[in-house]
């Protein structure tokens, strides 16, 4: 390696090698666990069914299915937690010191008065960090998906909209890692101290994740599943229920009153009740599992957009030499 890239490597090699070793350990562990899982599925001739109330699951040996899930869910949750926490880890240990430690210790004065300029110096170190963050988070996200997919959205197992899965896989996980890195770098540059910058990036990434998890269901409209008359409602299966049930009146309006027609001893049956109140059908609002990708791309765009804004800020601050 030559020039500023050598410097970037020399300064980050401990992080790169530690990260690579941990990742390799994860790969080995997941490969072992997943092979175990697959042989269990094969041995019991499982028909892997989707959804907790699906007819697909009717013929499944529930005892064995529960064993399959309980054997693997903890591991997947642990891996998912690691993957979901990776952006914070990257922000704290890679982003915050990337410029923060240089400014804190004064070594930026040494680096920036050599033959290579600010641009090459920053590009090399930030580029290496970006490369490693993207690779690392992508591998971890892929591992989660790989392990989880054979038993995904199954019975009372892990569903796509669970935080352990949604935040740990897909393009959004990689974009979030990039955001964590950029936020850490910006915090280090603006605060000029590593430790406070670490605290700030922890707060920012966790806070943003919390906001996104809270407001995720408001990004897009859920799908209303409509059943005519008193026909039985469609099973929820692997969809993400909003919990909004209701009736459709004669004018086609949705009336979100789930308990308009309770049933029980001495009460009219559903058909009679609906006829009495003028309802012609029922609905249930859900996000089908295909919305996983819509949510993922929306959040990917949010993370990348914020990362781009922070990156621009870093460039402006560096170029204006507002540091010191």
């Amino acid at each position: 390696m030559k020039g500023s890239l050598w410097l970037a490597w020399r300064q980050q090699r401990a992080l790169v090698l530690t990260g690579a070793a941990l990742l390799l350990a994860c790969v080995a562990w997941v490969a072992f666990q997943r092979a175990d899982m697959m042989s269990f599925i094969d041995a019991h001739h499982f028909k892997v069914c989707k959804g907790w109330d699906s007819e697909e699951c009717a013929g499944t040996d529930l005892e064995q299915a529960q064993r399959l899930l309980s054997d693997n869910d903890d591991g997947i949750v642990a891996l998912g937690t690691l993957s979901a926490a990776l952006p914070v880890i990257i922000g704290i240990f890679w982003g915050a010191p990337l410029l923060g430690r240089e400014l804190e210790s004064g070594t930026w004065k040494l680096a920036l008065t050599q033959g290579v300029g600010l641009r090459r110096w920053f590009t090399a170190r930030f580029g290496l960090a970006v490369l490693c963050s993207v690779l690392g988070s992508a591998v971890l996200a892929a591992l989660v998906a790989w392990w989880w997919s054979p038993i995904s959205n199954m019975l009372d197992g892990l569903y796509w909209h669970d935080g352990y899965i949604f935040n740990a896989t897909g393009p959004a996980a990689v974009a979030c890692a990039l955001f964590g890195l950029t936020a850490g770098t910006a915090a280090g540059l603006l605060i000029r101290r590593t430790l406070p910058a670490m605290g700030v990036v922890l707060g920012v990434v966790v806070g943003l994740r919390f906001l996104l998890n809270t407001f995720r269901s408001s990004w897009i409209e859920p799908t209303a599943r409509i059943s005519q008359g008193d026909a039985p409602r469609e099973n929820v299966r692997s969809a993400w229920s909003t919990g909004e049930f209701g009736f459709i009146d004669g004018a086609g309006r949705k009336r979100p009153i789930a308990d308009a027609c309770p049933w029980g001893e001495g009460l009219p049956d559903l058909k009679t009740c609906m006829a009495q109140k003028g309802f012609v059908g029922r609905y249930h609002k859900v996000y089908p599992s295909s919305d996983f990708w819509v949510f993922q791309w929306i959040e990917t765009a949010i993370f990348l957009g914020l990362a781009a804004v922070l990156f621009a800020l870093i460039c402006v601050v560096l170029r204006r030499r507002a540091v010191i």
């Binding site: 020039g3 300064q11 210790s105 070594t107 004065k109 680096a111 008065t113 050599q114």
Partner: peptide
Amino acid sequence: AFLAQDKPLYPRFTVGDTLRFGRELN
């Protein structure tokens, strides 16, 4: 060439690394 007041060097580099730093960046 500039020698700042606190004489900043990378504390975890060896002396050899530090000279290589100069060689790589100039």
